[in-house]
Computed example of a mutant assay.
Amino acid sequence: MSRLDRIAEFAVAVREAWEENRLIRLRLSGYEGEEAELKSVDMRRVVIKGREKISAVSHFKTRDITKNYDFDEVMETLLAKLSTEFRVATLNSVSFDLVLERHGQKVRLKQTEIAGREAPPMEHDRAKNRPLTDGGKLWLQQLDLAGKNGRVRNDAQDKFRQINKMVEIFAPLIQGLDAKNPRIVDMGAGKGYLDFAQQVEIVGVELRDRLVADGNDNAQQSGFSGLSFVQGTILDFDASQADAVIALHACDTATDDAIYQGIKAGAALIAVAPCCHKQIRRQMEAGSADGRLDFLLRHGTFLEKQAEMVTDGLRALLLEANGYRTKVFEFVSDAHTPKNNLIVAQKGGGGSRPAALDRIAAVKAMFGIEKHYLETLLDP
Rank of each mutant, 00 (worst) to 15 (best):
Q157C: 01
Q142H: 01
L211P: 01
V344Y: 12
G262E: 09
F224M: 05
Q231V: 03
S240I: 15
A289G: 07
L138F: 00
E19F: 02
G104S: 11
G349A: 07
V47P: 01
L303R: 08
D195K: 00
I369T: 12
G135V: 08
A289E: 08
A362D: 09
T255Q: 08
L23A: 09
D290C: 06
I263G: 04
Q221K: 00
R282C: 02
V344N: 10
A247C: 11
R183Q: 04
P274T: 13
Q231S: 05
R63L: 10
D186H: 13
S93K: 08
T112I: 15
E34A: 11
V152S: 05
G232K: 01
V272M: 07
D195R: 00
G150M: 01
I169N: 03
E20G: 02
F60E: 14
W139G: 00
L303D: 01
E330A: 02
L211S: 10
F196K: 12
R6H: 02
G116A: 07
A267R: 14
I163E: 11
V185K: 04
S240L: 05
E9S: 13
F295I: 02
D358M: 14
A89P: 01
Q111F: 13
Q157H: 07
G116S: 03
T311V: 02
G223P: 01
L28W: 03
Q162S: 10
I259K: 15
K339V: 06
V272Q: 10
K180Y: 10
V200R: 03
E16K: 12
W18N: 05
E37K: 09
G136M: 04
T62M: 06
G204Q: 04
Q111N: 06
G368R: 07
A365M: 08
R102I: 13
Q105W: 07
K364C: 10
V152T: 13
G291N: 11
A179T: 13
N21F: 09
R325S: 12
H299N: 05
T112D: 05
I202T: 14
I270E: 12
S228C: 03
G223E: 00
D334N: 10
A156H: 01
A247T: 03
D178L: 06
F237E: 14
D358W: 08
G50P: 04
I343L: 14
G50C: 11
D290S: 08
A239K: 01
S228K: 15
K371Q: 02
L177N: 02
L374F: 15
A250I: 08
P121L: 03
Q199M: 04
A36D: 15
R45S: 07
E304F: 05
E20A: 05
N21E: 12
Q157R: 11
V272R: 15
A307R: 06
M122D: 07
S225A: 11
F329Y: 13
L378V: 07
A127F: 12
L319K: 14
V107H: 08
A267W: 09
A258Q: 12
E35D: 06
G50V: 14
M284E: 07
K49A: 07
H249F: 12
P338M: 06
A335R: 06
S93N: 02
L4N: 10
H277M: 14
L296F: 07
T301F: 03
F96P: 06
G323S: 09
E52M: 03
R117N: 10
R117P: 01
